[in-house]
Amino acid sequence: MTVAIVDYGSGNLHSAAKAFERASRSMEDPQKVIVTRDPDAVYRADRIVLPGVGAFADCRRGLDAVDGMLEAMTEAVRAKARPFFGICVGMQLMATRGKEHVTTDGFNWIEGDVEKISPREENLKIPHMGWNTLDLVREHPVLERLPLGPKGRHAYFVHSYHLNASNEADVLARAEYGGPVTAIVGKDTAIGTQFHPEKSQRFGLALISNFLKWKP
């Protein structure tokens, strides 16, 4: 079993790779984690992880610059039903469109736009930077045994935009930051988190473990 972390020049792949390696090592059946910019390797992988930091349009550009990568990912996820995990902007790219500075097309796997968050309370700062709890919207195998809700565990967020999903069924969890913020989306064999599981200590590693065990 191979987990491919897609390398398209966006930020910190190192910590994502290390977190997946750590989670994998603690499993009965460890999976090999590779960081790759080879579309064939991504196509052949059993699971795909798309990290992403920075601006939506930059990430999209970076991904498009790797010849055949989007096609390989789409084929693997849509036709071969491979589990997919988008992180932060990697999750936002799953949307129909990004509206950060300019309007940019996403993959349209999750219907909806990526829009600026606008907390009601004036004293809440943007970016939404720090630890927040998650409110469950829909049960999902990757959320199994994770303590959510106001008294649950925390996830680490750093973002100013979020995926405003058109279909409530695609939202697995939200955070509250002067209004609802989409925290986890999931549809078919793809999931995505706005927060950084690779930076969310034990909670993040537990979520990654669930993803690695998930057999959709």
């Binding site: 910190n12 910590s15 290390k18 750093v158 690779e198 930076k199 969310s200 200590q201 590693l205």
Partner: peptide, 25 residues
């Protein structure tokens, strides 16, 4: 697996790129 900020002597785009690549958030 927690957020890490690194400062001190950051002067160029290359400095930032290198720190991020090595694991700073």
């Amino acid at each position: 697996f927690m957020p890490l900020t690194v400062g001190g002597g950051v002067r160029t785009i290359e400095d930032i790129k290198t720190l991020l690549r090595f694991g700073a958030d």
